[in-house]
Structures are given as C-alpha cells and as structure tokens.
C-alpha cells in the first residue's frame, strides 16, 4: 500500500499525508521531523541461535519511512522497540541448538516432565492423607478416655440367681447370673408375645449371663432387679416389667433393655465396653 502510494507519480505528494505538517488548531511544540535512522551494525560473530536471541542484534529504531520513486517505499521494523527476553537460560539443554531436531530428545524430556509431575503428586497425596488422618484421629477419644470406658467384671463374685449393678460410663450396668430355670423360661418365650421381639439367644453370649444397661427405655429410671411380674426387672417410676432377659413385657416402655458390647476374656472375667 505504501509502495503504491509512492509510485503514483504526480499524486504522491498529495497522497502521503505524513510527509507534511498539517496545520491544525493545536500547534505542536516540536515540529514533526523525519529522523534518519542510525545504521545498525550487526555483530556477525554472535551465534544466531533462535528468534529470541536475535533481539540482541536486530535494529532498534522506530518505524522509518523513505519515499523514492525507484526504491522501496518504506521499511518498517515491526516492534523492534520491544525487547524480547532471551529465554535460553530457561530452555533445556537439548533444545538450545535450533539446528538440532527437538524430536530426538522428546522422549526423555517428556518422561522427565511426567516423572516430576508424578513425584510431586505422590508427595501431595501423601501429605493430604497424613493431614486428614491426623485431623480425624485428633477427634477420636484419647487412650485414657478409652481405658476409662471399659469395665472388667469378675463373674465368680456373682452368685447364681443374683443381679449385680456396676457403674459403667456413668450409667448402671446390670450383670445377672441366671439359673437354669430362668434360661429355660426365657428361651421358650414366644416372640409374638413380645412388644420388641428379640430372641433370648440374640441378647446373650453365654446364656448364664445377662448383661444389660440398667436404664429403663421409657424415661430413663433405674429398674429394680428381681422384681415385677416376670421375675426380671421392674421400673418403679411408671411400672414397666422386664423379664429375666431384659425384654419389655408390660408397662409403658417401648424397647428392651439395651445390651452393651462385651466379651468374655475367660470363664471368669468379662470386659464391657
């Protein structure tokens, strides 16, 4: 376009507005003068590595326009005033040389990149897992609290047919040594008679021992052992009758007495909790 304007003969002075100072309402302080660009000396010894390293030797003048009928109309060094940084420090050594094909080293560079990514992710996964597990375990009960939450009971101290009350986690705990007759009665109970149907076998680990929480399921009173119409427990507050397996048989309570988790260490000891 510029060359077309330059070669249009007699019209050229009229078509290139930039060559003349156009009088306007605002007068510029410095009149527009076309400054001839400096001659640039290109250092031929400097290695021409890549486009970026060219910035060290390319012309640094602004746009220069020359108008001549026979010559080229204008040479514009596009954006040569912008300094492009040299990234060769950040490039991998395999791709420093622009003459070499980068495909030859692509395999090792790619593997290295993935290896670094994978290793960083492994570290991240490990750290995340450690942080989460530490945080979650900090919310669980500490060892002294766990030790307090267990109770060890010597069963030989409880005579047959008797019920003993222990304190466990702030609540009364009934341990009942049943007689053969009681065991036979409770196993024979028809499930359809029960309000909260549960077989006696499901409530005990050893049929001789019934271990239940001494909290009435109605409103939380402590039942009285060996009382009531069914020979088990009787709640004095509102008259709930439990049988010798701790199951509700009569009265307002909706559920059987709760059976905590317990295990027999040996014939003589049981650990509740």
């Amino acid at each position: 376009m510029m060359s077309l304007a330059a070669r249009s003969g007699a019209f050229s002075p009229y078509m290139q507005a930039t060559a003349f100072v156009v009088p306007g309402p605002l007068k510029s302080l410095i009149p527009g003068v076309v400054v001839k660009g400096e001659t640039i000396l290109v250092d031929p010894k400097k290695p021409f590595l890549c486009r970026e390293s060219l910035s060290g030797q390319s012309p640094k003048t602004g746009p220069a326009v020359t108008v001549c009928i026979n010559g080229c109309a204008g040479v514009r060094f596009a954006h040569t005033d912008i300094r492009i940084p040299d990234y060769s420090d950040y490039r991998r050594p395999e791709v420093q040389d622009p003459q070499k094909s980068s495909q030859d080293s692509s395999e090792s560079r790619r593997t290295f990149s993935y290896l670094v990514t994978g290793a960083a992710t492994v570290m991240g996964v490990y750290s995340a897992k450690t942080v989460v597990s530490q945080f979650v375990s900090s919310m669980s009960a500490s060892a002294d609290v766990l030790a307090m939450s267990k109770i060890q009971i010597k069963l030989s101290e409880i005579p047959e047919g008797n019920n003993m009350t222990f304190k466990w986690r702030g609540k009364p705990l009934f341990v009942r040594h049943r007689t053969e007759k009681e065991i036979a009665t409770e196993t024979a109970v028809n499930l359809s008679e029960l309000r909260d149907p549960e077989h006696d076998k499901d409530r005990v680990k050893d049929p001789a021992w019934v271990i239940v929480l001494g909290v009435c399921t109605h409103l939380g009173c402590v039942p009285i052992a060996n009382a009531g119409e069914f020979g088990g427990y009787y709640c004095p507050c509102h008259g709930s009758h439990y049988d010798a397996s701790g199951r509700i048989r009569k009265g307002p309570a909706p559920l059987n007495l709760e059976v905590p988790f317990y295990e027999f260490l040996d014939e003589d000891t049981v650990v509740v909790g």
């Binding site: 790619r110 993935y114 994978g118 490990y126 897992k129």
Partner: peptide, 15 residues
C-alpha cells in the same frame, strides 16, 4: 505415563 488411567494408578501405588 502415557495413559491418564495408568498414570493415576502409578501415583496411587507410588503414594
């Protein structure tokens, strides 16, 4: 490393 699935498995096993 080529497949994302095997890459993820590698990371998990590696962790």
């Amino acid at each position: 490393f080529r497949r994302t699935s095997t890459f993820a498995i590698t990371i998990m096993v590696g962790a």
